[in-house]
């Protein structure tokens, strides 16, 4: 009940602050871009778009949402109700997952793309959205305002996106397999390229481990800096 109430409020909050309009405009732009491209470039571009959409935008917007909320001193009032911290965080993550996933779904639908490896692709899209939302939350927990958030998160955001260099065939190193973005790019690319089962399984496991680690980190940071700030 509390989780549903918080989730509904978060969706409405994001809607009234214009996040759904931004996503709608971007989704339409992505669809137009994909439809104008020659067929050979559609899938690579789709992978880049989804990677950018889920990772970069997710990372940016979750920070903005939390900071908007903190700017209105809302977290203080939420944590003096019976709402649990995990319910608060889950509502944030689910609401944002919904936004990212709806955008990705409509891009795929609008651009009429699909493939035989959809299960891996969907898993990759969902867990990547989760992970970058969690990364955003880690930095949003301690940021005081939007500029502060960007300064603190930009370096890490760029650093964890480095495996895009391998995808673009500019630079590669086995170290990239430690990055969650490597797994994301593999799973988002399964519609276009064939990957070995071991590579797909490794990506799934990698994203799951990142998800567990980041979940714990986010909970600890919010407990320390948001629920009990001192």
């Amino acid at each position: 009940m509390r989780l549903l109430a918080a989730l509904k409020q978060d969706i409405l909050f994001q809607f009234r602050h214009g996040f759904y309009y931004v996503y709608a405009v971007l989704t339409v732009l992505y669809i137009i871009t994909l439809r104008l491209l020659p067929e050979t470039l559609v899938y690579p571009t789709l992978t880049i778009i989804l990677f950018t959409d889920i990772c970069t935008l997710g990372f940016t917007f979750i920070g903005a949402i939390v900071l908007l909320e903190r700017g209105q001193n809302l977290t203080e009032s939420l944590f003096v109700t019976p709402l649990r911290l995990h319910e608060y965080l889950l509502a944030k993550i689910l609401s944002f997952l919904l936004l990212s996933f709806a955008s990705a779904f409509f891009v795929m639908l609008g651009a009429s793309v699909g493939g035989h490896d959809r299960m891996w692709f969907v898993y990759g899209a969902i867990f990547s959205a989760l992970i970058y939302t969690l990364f955003g939350l880690v930095f949003a927990a301690r940021a005081r305002h939007v500029n502060d958030y960007f300064v603190k998160s930009l370096g890490i955001g760029l650093a964890i996106s480095l495996p895009i260099l391998a995808y673009l065939r500019l630079f590669d190193t086995p170290l990239f397999y430690v990055f969650p973005t490597r797994a994301t790019l593999i799973l988002l690319d399964v519609l276009d390229h064939d990957y070995a089962l071991s590579e797909k399984l490794f990506s799934v496991a990698s994203l799951f481990i990142w998800f567990l680690v980041l979940s714990g980190w986010v909970y600890q940071r919010f407990d320390k800096y948001v629920r009990h700030p001192a």
Binding site: L12, F13, R16, Q72, N73, L74, V80
Partner: peptide
């Protein structure tokens, strides 16, 4: 019940 000094409310609601 708690009322903080700074009113903390959803301004777009």
């Amino acid at each position: 019940g708690v009322a903080f000094e700074t009113p903390n409310l959803y301004t777009k609601f």
